[in-house]
């Protein structure tokens, strides 16, 4: 007799180490999606990912227009590297992406963090990276619950049904 045993995910620990718009959003969408499903979610921002929770930078995240093979012109043609390198192009493309996302009801970073924390999701900054970039607690958005070590991160991950996800 085979009895189907279910192993639901109870907690996700999401690590975001990059500042690209798409990498940050991958982490935020997954965290918010988890909270919406009643799954506990904790997001750990480290290295360049700290930009997403740094007050001065979080509203102006960019997607790379150089060195990004997925980048296309609006007509589907390849995006010329030299065009991507011109001043203002990366900012313009990033602004366009943000407006496209807004149309799909994907909120800006600060509002997304509002939604995640409203549902009980928690936001953490990596202590090592914070020291490396010489940042302070007050440089971060108020959504950040704490600045923690990787050891504390693993302590928070403890329990059955936890998944650790690196975006």
């Amino acid at each position: 007799m085979n009895k189907k045993v279910e192993h639901p995910i109870r907690k996700v620990m999401i690590i975001c180490a990059k500042a690209n718009l798409e990498d940050v959003y991958a982490a935020l969408v997954m965290a918010n999606g988890a909270v919406m499903e009643g799954i506990e979610a904790k997001v750990f921002f480290t290295f360049f990912g700290l930009d997403a929770i740094t007050k001065k930078r979080m509203k102006n995240l960019h997607t790379a227009t150089v060195g990004n093979p997925g980048m296309r012109m609006p007509n589907g043609m390849a995006f010329p590297t030299l065009l991507g390198a011109m001043p203002g192009v990366e900012a313009g493309v990033s602004a366009m992406m943000r407006s496209q996302m807004d149309k799909l009801d994907i909120p800006p970073v600060d509002e997304f963090l509002d939604l995640i924390t409203a549902g009980g999701g928690e936001i953490y900054a990596c202590k090592l990276a914070v020291e490396m970039f010489k940042l302070k607690k007050e440089d971060f958005t108020e959504h950040v619950k704490d600045i923690i070590t990787i050891g504390q991160f693993y302590e928070l991950a403890a329990g059955e049904g936890t998944q650790i996800i690196f975006t």
């Binding site: 918010n32 919406m36 009801d105 909120p107 509002e111 939604l115 409203a118």
Partner: peptide, 9 residues
Amino acid sequence: EALSLRSIG
């Protein structure tokens, strides 16, 4: 209209 957590908020 599509329903989202954001729109309800």
